[in-house]
Design a protein around this nucleic acid. Structure first.
Length: 262
DNA sequence: AACTCCGGCAACCGCTGTCCA
DNA sequence: ATGGACAGCGGTTGCCGGAGT
């Protein structure tokens, strides 16, 4: 039996998305809403697999996405939820409006996991690492803000360093919070913002409702509405050939449609 | 300045779950 | 009940940039 591939891989572009492709996808979804992903590439004029479009949208282009590093509170929540849910990133992400499962997964694998290991916690089980016993006995982990007792708790709350690192020297950018706050600053003059604001899109259209379906039962962090004046997500798209500004996401591989760099 | 190494993250892959005819 | 189509999920890969030498 077997399933058909989600798309014909012949003639389907792969790899990093170009600004032009992003623009096409955004404008298509803004105009038509999210419909059948399989049809999106064709209708939007993209040589991409529908799955790729969905991923690009949900992980990067969605207006309600927060950008930047997770805050200490969010990180705390991720650890707590992971202790209860395990690697169910989508469930965890549902509790963090504006964050994607991919983002949380990456953050877990790159920051939190290492942090917990350094703190003597097994990231998989949330139990103290066997080797950490010796560590704690020698006092080398005495500066850790987590105790063995708290680690044993199922409802554990790790007191992660608010600056994003544990006190044992995990290298964490000191400007992470600063960066985070930068990312939430207003950029009302953004060319793409203007473009979107100028677009005649009814404010009560269903497509505007991007907030997480699970937001209702979440008290605390509330994701910004895309049109409440917070246009953070647009920060990354200031170079859609819609202006002269060149604020592209750090590390982004923005290319022309022929593959050459901008 | 040139090179190597490594961390971070976007994107891909393959599988599962759900819906519907 | 069955199977196809699609969305979603979690694990993994590979590229790029920055740090280190």
């Amino acid at each position: 039996m077997g399933r058909q591939p989600c798309c014909d891989k012949k003639g389907v572009k792969r790899g990093p998305w170009t600004a032009e492709e992003d623009k096409k996808l955004i404008s298509f979804i803004l105009m038509h809403g999210r419909c059948c992903w399989r049809a999106v590439p064709k209708l939007a004029g993209l040589l991409r697999c529908g799955k790729s479009c969905r991923l690009r949208w949900t992980n990067y282009l969605r207006p309600d996405l927060k950008r930047g590093l997770l805050t200490a509170e969010e990180e705390q929540l991720v650890v707590d939820l992971h202790s209860k849910l395990g690697n169910r990133w989508s469930k965890i992400a549902a509790k963090l409006p504006g964050r994607t499962d991919n983002e949380i997964k990456n953050h877990w694998n790159t920051y939190i996991k290492k942090k917990l290991i350094k703190m003597g916690i097994d990231p998989a089980t949330h139990q103290p690492l066997a080797s950490s016993k010796d560590d704690s006995q020698t006092g080398t982990s005495s500066q850790s803000t987590i105790t063995t007792e708290s680690a044993k708790s199922n409802d554990m709350t790790y007191l992660l360093d608010p600056k994003g690192g544990c006190s044992r020297g995990m290298p964490v950018p000191t400007d992470s919070l600063e960066q985070s706050s930068r990312n939430t600053s207003s950029h009302s003059l953004d060319p793409l913002v203007n473009w979107l604001l100028e677009a005649e899109l009814p404010a009560d259209d269903p497509w505007l409702n991007f907030s997480s379906s699970n937001d209702d039962d979440f008290i605390g962090i509330v994701g910004p509405s895309p049109w409440d004046g917070t246009t953070d997500w647009l920060l990354d798209y200031q170079d859609f050939n819609m202006g002269n500004s060149s604020l592209i996401r750090p590390g982004a591989r923005i290319q022309n449609s022929d593959g050459s760099d901008f």
